[in-house]
Computed example of a mutant assay.
Amino acid sequence: MSSLWVFPGQGAQQPEMLHGLPVSHETRECLAEASAVLEQDALTLDSAHALASTRAVQLCLLIAGVSCARILIQRGHRPDYVSGLSIGAYAAAVVAGALSFADALRLVSLRGELMQQAYPQGFGMTAIMGVDIGTLEGLLAQVNSPEQPVYLANINAEAQQVIAGSHGAMRQVALLAKKSGAGCAKLLAVSVPSHCPLLETPAARLSEAFSSVDLGPTQIRYLSSSSARLLNTPEQLRDDLANNMCRVVDWHNTLRMAYERGVRLHLELPPGTVLTGLARRQFEPGQAIAFQGARLDTLDAMLRQEASRDS
């Protein structure tokens, strides 16, 4: 049996999330490197005020994910697979050994700025729960227009999707979804319309920045959350990371692919536990656990137990 380490996307951020990281050599190193590369104190990024910025949110998610993964690696653990939802893919690529942490910081800083500049207000993302994807796509077709754009953005589970677009269009889709049996429609803490054609222009600009970045082959198997496929060449990784902001996230099938390949231990790196909840639906009789809220010695025991099963 194998293990999968996953890294969450925007919406999982929490005030003071960097200040709450475990005290360790790895955490201090990551924060110091981030501060040097970004030319600002990384610990200024996680205040409630700072997290109103897409750039700050995405940088905090990257730093938190890489820091905690390195803590576990230093303690002798190593995943069989890594994957990240949206911005989480950058932390996954760093842990997979394909992208340096310094380059990831520079790219994520630019990514956040490009996304924020493209849609400074009036747009976002909404989770729709309780309707199937076919029904939701029909509702999107009814509402979507050049004046009120709205698109499918994430497929999180069979009856849990996320849409992206203008606030007005999302409200219309949410009302129609509730009439069609949706149990909940929740506006997410994301200020840009990610994972849809609205971000094709900033994705193209980010692709240009990637052309000067060296990527290597993956040392740990990397599952793309856009294609739900294994990627391993630098060219594949470059395309996946640069363009995932404008491609639908298929997290449901990414987890299914992992399970079909023998993954039975799903570990969510900080912050949050949302991905753990989604995985529990697909990982029975396996285990889905989150780093946040768990003791390190408990994680040690679970990861060692899984490794001993593989040997």
Rank of each mutant, 00 (worst) to 15 (best):
I63N: 10
R261V: 04
A159N: 14
A127Q: 06
I289D: 08
A92L: 10
D132K: 01
K178Y: 00
L136A: 00
A301Y: 13
G181V: 03
R78M: 07
Y81D: 09
A189Q: 10
T254G: 00
L59N: 02
A164W: 02
G183C: 08
S211I: 00
L61N: 06
D300S: 13
C246Q: 10
D239M: 11
G124Y: 09
T276V: 10
K178R: 10
L198E: 01
M302R: 14
I63M: 13
A141F: 09
L275G: 04
Y81F: 15
A98T: 06
Q58H: 09
L255C: 13
S53Q: 07
P79R: 09
L215W: 06
H252K: 15
S100P: 01
C196G: 09
L136S: 10
D214M: 12
L72G: 03
S225T: 15
L206Y: 12
A127H: 07
G272V: 03
L206R: 13
S212T: 15
C30F: 01
L85Q: 12
V95R: 05
P15Y: 05
Q40F: 06
A118Y: 08
P146T: 03
S225Q: 05
P8S: 01
P271V: 08
V23T: 09
R111G: 11
R75S: 06
A96S: 08
E260N: 14
S224K: 14
R280Q: 13
A56I: 03
L223F: 07
S109F: 11
D239E: 12
C184A: 15
L45R: 14
F210A: 03
G168Y: 02
A242Y: 07
M1C: 00
A52E: 15
